[in-house]
Amino acid sequence: MNKVKATGIIFIIFVLPFISLFTMSLAMPMAHAQGTPVLDTMAKDFFCTCGCNYVLATCESQMTCDVAKSLKVELAGYISKGMNRDEIIDTMTGKYGNTMLATPRAEGFTLALWWYPAAGGIVGIIVIALVARRRSNVNWRIDPDEVLALNEEELLQQINIDKSSAETPVTKKYDDILKERLAGKKYDDMLKDKRKASKTKSKQAKEEE
């Protein structure tokens, strides 16, 4: 129950900003589409046809481009005629082709462009759900910072223990390493001591055998 509550809290934390952003993002394009088109905004909806690959707004100002200037005048003309954004886009693409439209419309095959991120996200969430369902009782864990304190022999030891048993012992906690360091031992000496201790231990085990 506790875990369910905790999951719920995290869920809410993530959902709240999204509900607000989603509502606003829905509201804004609608306002953008329905309201009177603004020249500066519309100049970012089309690529310049001069071959520069900039949107009109950039091409006109950065390249001092005459093509961009005349296209912007054309846009201003449509706006002053009272045409809405969709009508202007239809007219411009009808005249100059679809390649000049900087933000493709979600229709026909282009739907694949717009739905791809959502589809990717949904597939990813399903995969995560499937992975997370394979719950484990393995208690072994080590903090990534503790990993940095280990050398390759120790890491190999960890990996080998890990392979041989699901119930692996916890590595020497970082706090313990810290205590030893604070007691004045140098890191390399500590490792030497550890290796010595493990060698003695394995020697003893052999002798016992």
Partner: peptide, 18 residues
């Protein structure tokens, strides 16, 4: 032929960045 300009990425990226 078609182009995909900043409008597409600007519509998707804010969600992921947030």
């Amino acid at each position: 032929k078609m182009s995909v300009g900043p409008g597409f990425y600007s519509a998707i990226a804010p969600w992921i960045i947030l």
